[in-house]
């Protein structure tokens, strides 16, 4: 994971040199809609929930300080249904629903060199507050939050060059200058204070990026 992050940083850094060459008419905002799977860092997650991943959906909005640098915020949701440990019987029993709602504030760097660039690597990271909710059958619900961080990196594939008329229409009707597919990996860590439980994990997401 660390190696991947270092590689991503190396890919992105040279773009700073081309920043001054960019055209003035650039998008100011980016909106990401993405989904995928989230693999919690919890060691025995699959033993209680039957699988090692949870579905995740996320939405984020960022402001472009420069074409290559964004500041933004995002929210997500993940959930799983499993069983709990019956303390005296020592067996799994009952029904537990475990929901996570990460809230992220982030800085994102995109390796943008030109308007016609089709493949754009990006990396980012920031602060994370992980809200959790656990509903145990016949026992009620516990909820709370844990603070931590997240880092992410991915590849943005511009769709504008695939269909210029469509991209022109997107701009005409909605003001969207560039539409891209994104594929990214995200790592988060958020330890609950009192139990030191890390509610983070690794997510693999894909989605659409709209820049406007």
């Amino acid at each position: 994971m660390r190696r991947a992050l270092i590689l991503a940083v190396l890919l992105v850094l040279p773009t700073a040199a081309y920043a001054s060459d960019m055209l003035l008419a650039q998008p100011r905002w980016s909106l990401e809609v993405k989904g995928g799977v989230f693999a919690p860092s919890l060691e025995n997650f699959s033993g209680y929930y039957g699988q090692s991943t949870m579905p995740e959906f996320a939405l984020s909005l960022a402001y472009k300080l420069r074409p290559q640098v964004e500041l933004g915020a995002g929210v997500g949701a993940s959930w799983a249904t499993g069983s709990a440990l019956a303390v005296s019987h020592g067996t799994l029993a009952g029904k537990v629903t475990y929901d996570l709602y990460p809230v992220n504030l982030f800085v994102l760097l995109r390796a943008v060199r030109s308007d016609e660039q089709r493949l754009i690597p990006y990396i980012g990271g920031g602060w994370t507050r992980m809200y959790y909710r656990q509903k145990v059958q016949d026992q009620g619900t516990v909820s709370g939050s844990a603070d931590g961080y997240h880092v992410r990196g991915g590849l943005q594939i511009s769709l504008n060059e695939l269909d210029e008329r469509a991209s022109s229409s997107m701009y005409s009707f909605y003001g969207i200058m560039r539409t891209s597919c994104i594929f990214e990996a995200q790592y988060a860590s958020a330890k609950e204070d009192t139990t030191s439980t890390d509610l983070g994990g690794t997510a693999y997401l894909a989605g659409l990026l709209f820049e406007f």
Binding site: L42, G82, V87, H89, G94, V136, D138, T141, S143, T195
Partner: peptide, 29 residues
């Protein structure tokens, strides 16, 4: 038969936090 409590995984506190020991001793939150 033996009544039993369920310990979810991971074991997390409620937002206000609950008294784990007292809950275990008295059998119910």
């Amino acid at each position: 038969e033996t009544p039993d409590s369920l310990a979810p995984y991971p074991l997390l506190p409620d937002s206000g936090g609950s008294c784990f020991i007292a809950t275990a001793a008295y059998g119910s939150y």
